[in-house]
C-alpha cells in the first residue's frame, strides 16, 4: 500500500517529465491569482494624485506624439482614417501586449523573494499579470470608444464602416494575451540563467513595434520582402483584423489570423513546458 503512489498526495522528485503541468493545482490556486490581480491594480497608483487617470495620460500623450512625428512630419498614411482614431487603436493594442510581455518576462527575477520562501504554482504570477493588465486595457479601450463615438456621430457621421468582423474582438484580445503570456514565460524561463536576454528583450520589444502595423497601415507596405516579414509577425494579423472590423480599413485575412492563432498555441505549449521545468530549480540559478 505504501508503495502505491495513490497513498502519497505529494511526490517530490529531481526532475519531472516534460508535460507534467498540474492544471488541477493551478485551478486550486485561483483565489491567489485573483489576489495578485487585485494587488497589481490597487497598488500601482497608490499615493498618486491622478490615480487610475494615469492609465489614460499615457496613451493620450503617445497619440499626440505620434500625430506630430509620424502623421505630421513623416506624413505616413493612416488609410484615410482620422489620425487620433488610427493611432489610438494601435497604441491600445500594442500597449497591452508590450506591458504584459515586459512584466511577465521578469516574473522570476521580480518575485524571487516570494518564490524563495513558499511554493505555489509559479504560473499563477504571469497569468495574474496578463489579467490585471486587462483592466488597464479596458480603461484605455473606453477612451478609444469615446473618441470613436465622437468621430462616428459628430465629426464624420457614417463614414467609419464598422462591420461584422468587429465581433472577433474578444478572440483578438485572447490571442494578444496568449502571445504576450507565451513570449513572457519563455523569456522569463531563459532570463533566470542568462540575464543578457533581459537586456535584449526591452530593446527587442521597442523594435518589434515598428515591425507591427501600429503607426502605419499594412497597405503602405509595398516591398514584397517586407510584406512577407510582416506576415510572419503573429501580431500583424491581430492588429489588422481589429482595424478592419472596428474601423473598416486595412486588409483582413483569415489566413493571417489562423497563423497567429496556431503560433500562439504552439508558443504557449513550449512556454509552459519550459517554465514548468525552470520553476523547480530556479532558486539555485536566479
Amino acid at each position: 500500500m505504501k508503495n502505491d503512489d495513490k497513498y502519497w498526495s505529494t511526490v517530490i522528485k529531481p526532475k519531472s517529465s516534460l508535460f507534467s503541468v498540474d492544471w488541477g493545482e493551478l485551478w486550486q490556486y485561483r483565489d491567489l491569482a485573483a489576489m495578485f490581480v487585485r494587488r497589481n491594480i490597487t497598488t500601482q497608483y497608490k499615493q498618486t494624485v491622478l490615480g487610475p487617470l494615469w492609465y489614460l495620460v499615457q496613451p493620450v500623450l503617445t497619440v499626440v506624439m505620434y500625430m506630430f512625428v509620424f502623421g505630421g512630419i513623416a506624413k505616413i498614411s493612416t488609410d484615410g482614417l482620422p489620425q487620433p482614431l488610427f493611432y489610438l487603436s494601435g497604441v491600445c493594442l500594442w500597449g497591452y501586449f508590450s506591458d504584459c510581455l515586459n512584466r511577465t518576462s521578469n516574473t522570476f527575477v521580480d518575485n524571487a523573494g516570494i518564490f524563495g520562501k513558499v511554493y505555489f504554482p509559479r504560473l499563477i504570477v504571469p497569468i495574474a499579470n496578463v489579467i490585471s493588465n486587462l483592466v488597464r486595457f479596458g480603461i484605455q479601450l473606453g477612451l478609444f470608444l469615446i473618441v470613436y463615438l465622437v468621430y462616428q456621430l459628430f465629426v464624420m457621421p457614417g463614414q467609419i464602416h464598422t462591420n461584422i468582423y468587429a465581433l472577433l474582438f474578444p478572440l483578438l484580445v485572447v490571442m494578444l494575451a496568449g502571445l504576450a503570456l507565451g513570449f513572457g514565460i519563455l523569456f522569463s524561463s531563459l532570463t533566470t540563467k542568462y540575464r543578457d536576454l533581459q537586456l535584449l528583450l526591452s530593446f527587442f520589444v521597442s523594435l518589434w513595434m515598428y515591425a507591427t502595423p501600429i503607426i502605419y497601415p499594412m497597405s503602405t507596405v509595398t516591398n514584397s520582402y517586407a510584406k512577407l516579414a510582416m506576415s510572419l509577425n503573429p501580431l500583424t494579423g491581430i492588429v489588422e483584423a481589429f482595424r478592419y472590423g472596428v474601423l473598416g480599413v486595412g486588409n483582413f485575412s483569415w489566413g493571417l489570423l489562423a497563423y497567429s492563432f496556431v503560433f500562439m498555441v504552439v508558443l504557449l505549449l513550449v512556454g509552459v513546458v519550459l517554465f514548468n521545468r525552470v520553476q523547480r530549480s530556479f532558486m539555485d540559478t536566479v
Binding site: 502519497w8 498526495s9 505529494t10 511526490v11 517530490i12 513558499v118 511554493y119 530549480s281 532558486m283
Partner: peptide, 18 residues
C-alpha cells in the same frame, strides 16, 4: 526548502501524505 518545493532535489524522492 526541498520539502516545501521551493527548490527541487538533485537526487532522491520525497513522498508526503497531505
Amino acid at each position: 526548502k526541498i520539502l516545501s518545493r521551493v527548490t527541487a532535489p538533485t537526487t532522491g524522492t520525497i513522498r508526503a501524505r497531505g
